[in-house]
Design a protein around this nucleic acid. Structure first.
Lengths: 242, 242
DNA sequence: TGCCGGGTTTGCGCTGGCGCAACCTTTCTG
DNA sequence: CAGAAAGGTTGCGCCAGCGCAAACCCGGCA
């Protein structure tokens, strides 16, 4: 958005199908879902493109159809934290429409992506007219709240190693493609991303990931991380250095 | 709840007024608010009483009318974290009704309290029938999400000192009674509570709070903390050890 | 009044994990 | 295909802040 290289389309066949699979329209009759899809704008963005900026007035709600988005928050002191990675089928930037009205974080594509979005007016109207949509939104936000609260607790009580393991497991759950016992995380991750997700810094994260690769617990294949032994990872996440 | 010493009432004059002031019914006509109040059950609980337990099936949504409630999460490894303190006028335990259906934390009164609650059936019906209530819920949950995300970032990037300062400022904002330039936090706080709120342990928290009391930044008056110099506290929260 | 128990303070030692700096590898670009 | 830029690795030193344990304070109760 606001990027010279972006392409804009109205919903096509495939994108309509993707939108109808969103949690947002779960439990709704197909014609309503189709209506929701018809209101969406589709942006085709290259990797590294900004979608919205922290502090900007919230004017649209977004969903990733293809690709991935990084949601990064930056504090008044300049310190950054990666709040979440968004995988296809997930929404982002929606909460700000219902609260104070400013996006609380930056959003940028982590790879070439197709992004659906709705104007604030349309989105609020949908919410007002369909209790089911409202409830779906509450469910989505609630899910994220639970997730963030868990991370908060882990942050306070667990070691960096455990938190990194948890972060990877979360990503697998979020966007894991199983293949021959291993799970590929279909989101491009830099060391720095993993570190910030786990609430640590580049150096410890790099060390640990490298060590895990050496042991065969992890592998890299064209920008993506592959978890070769999820159970072992789970054991690390739970028990520490067992 | 499930406690021998609890007393149960149907809404009285005062409690109805308190319920009508809840964020839940913001922007609704008085008769609807009154209807919401009429559906509520009121529990009068002593301090230290359990309201619900982590992992239990979520059957009611709650609000504090008088008193205070501690929301504490305990991890599979036994480590505890204090997710939030609930002050009068705030709701808790509502999200679980819309997600997987289990309370994600323990709730217990931190002092003698009046607790309003609604059955899941009533609460869902209210949400289905009034888009405004649904939107209010989204707003409340969204607010909390933003709050928790901020804490998460602080946790990752700031020192224990800064986090404790932030925790106190949050509590002041949440339940501060101004009196002659100082703010009393009207929630009983043990050292341990402050520590867990800030994501650290008893020892550092005790040291810091004691030091701040020595300097006159804080004071204690009958179980409550009083912030004598909020600006200085704010400076500590921002800049570190300036 | 003296005892008891939960909460709090504090001296001391220790270590997890952070930060720097230098170097290496891969990807992008002209 | 060469050069640049961005990302990743790693040896080393260091310190914030955690944990223990022992003492202390204070309110409730007999």
């Amino acid at each position: 958005m606001g990027h010279g290289m972006s392409e804009q389309k109205t919903p096509s066949q495939n994108t309509v199908r993707a939108i109808c699979a969103l949690g947002l329209v779960k439990g709704l009759p197909p014609e309503v879902a189709a209506h929701v899809a018809s209101l969406a704008r589709i942006d085709v963005l290259p990797g590294g493109a900004g979608v919205f900026t922290q502090g900007a007035v919230a004017q649209r709600a977004y969903a990733v159809l293809v690709g991935a988005v990084r949601i990064r928050q930056i504090g008044s002191d300049g310190a950054q934290a990666l709040m979440r990675m968004i995988a296809p089928g997930e929404m982002f930037g929606t909460v700000a429409l219902f609260t104070e009205g400013y996006y609380p974080a930056d959003a940028e594509t982590a790879m070439p992506s197709h992004i659906a979005s709705w104007s604030k007016a349309d989105f609020m109207a949908l919410t007002m007219n369909s209790p089911q949509i409202a409830i779906n939104i509450i469910g989505m936000v609630g899910q994220r709240l639970a997730n963030v609260q868990n991370r908060l607790r882990e942050m306070a009580t667990q070691s960096a190693e455990q938190r990194i393991a948890h972060a990877l497991l979360m990503l697998v759950e979020q966007s894991g493609a199983v293949q021959a016992g291993a799970c590929e995380i279909c989101i491009p991750l830099r060391r720095r991303d993993v570190a910030e997700l786990a609430g640590t810094t580049l150096y410890p994260a790099s060390r640990l990931l490298a060590a895990w690769e050496k042991v065969g617990l992890l592998a890299r294949s064209r920008q993506m991380l592959v978890v070769r032994d999820a159970n072992k990872l789970r054991r690390i996440a739970q028990g520490g250095l067992l």
